[in-house]
C-alpha cells in the first residue's frame, strides 16, 4: 500500500507536470507578461520526453538484470534480487506513465540483453553492481537536463534508490557499502 501511494505520488506529479507542460498555453509573470511561449514549452516537453525515455531504457535493462540475477542466486540474495526487480519495474512504470502524460510513446525494451558469464554468486553481484553504476551515472547526467521540476523530483527519488541498491550489493559482495561521499565518483 505504501509503495502504491509512493508510485502514484511520483507518477502523479510527473503526470500533472507533464499535462501542464503539454498544454502549450504559455506562462506569465506577476505583471501578466508572457515569460515562456507555448512553442518553447512544447520544445521543452519534447526534450523531456527524450530524457525520460533514456531513463526508461536504463530501467528496462535493470529489470532484466535482476531477473537474471535471481535465477543465479539463492536464499536471501535471491529475495533481494526479486525485491530490486520489483522496484525497477515500478520505476519503469512511473517513467512510462510520464512519457504518455506528455503525449508520447514510451521506449520499448529489448527482447534480450547481453549477460556475462556468471560462474558463481560473486560474479552475479558484480554484474548487478555494474548495471547499477551505469544507472547512477545516467541519472546524474539526465537530471540537470530536465525542464520539468516534477520530473526532476521523480528522477532524484529513483536515483537515490539505485544508489541504495548499489550499497546493498557492495555489502553483499563483502565490500565497503559507501566508499565515496559522492555517488558517480567511485559509484
Amino acid at each position: 500500500m505504501v509503495e502504491r501511494r509512493a508510485f502514484l505520488a511520483v507518477a502523479g506529479t510527473a503526470l500533472a507536470g507533464g499535462v501542464l507542460t503539454a498544454c502549450g498555453s504559455g506562462s506569465q509573470d506577476d505583471n501578466g507578461i508572457a515569460t515562456e511561449t507555448g512553442a518553447e514549452q512544447s520544445t521543452a516537453a519534447s526534450a523531456d520526453v527524450a530524457i525520460v525515455n533514456q531513463a526508461l531504457v536504463v530501467e528496462q535493462r535493470a529489470i532484466a538484470t535482476y531477473r537474471t540475477a535471481a535465477q543465479h542466486l539463492s536464499g536471501a540474495r535471491r529475495r533481494t534480487a526479486r525485491t530490486f526487480e520489483a522496484q525497477e519495474r515500478m520505476h519503469a512504470d512511473a517513467l512510462a506513465s510520464a512519457v504518455m502524460a506528455l503525449g508520447a510513446t514510451p521506449a520499448t525494451g529489448r527482447d534480450r540483453y547481453a549477460v556475462p558469464s556468471l560462474p558463481d554468486e560473486a560474479a552475479v553481484l558484480r554484474f548487478a553492481m555494474g548495471v547499477e553504476q551505469i544507472a547512477v551515472a545516467q541519472y546524474l547526467d539526465l537530471i540537470p537536463r530536465l525542464s520539468s521540476q516534477n520530473l526532476r523530483g521523480t528522477f532524484a527519488s529513483i536515483l537515490t534508490v539505485e544508489a541504495e541498491h548499489l550499497a546493498v550489493l557492495r555489502e553483499e559482495a563483502g565490500q565497503e557499502p559507501v566508499p565515496d561521499a559522492f555517488v558517480g565518483r567511485s559509484t
Binding site: T160, V178, F182
Partner: peptide
C-alpha cells in the same frame, strides 16, 4: 542529486 543519493546509501 549526488548528495541526496549518498544520504540514501
Amino acid at each position: 542529486a549526488a548528495i541526496m543519493a549518498s544520504e540514501g546509501q
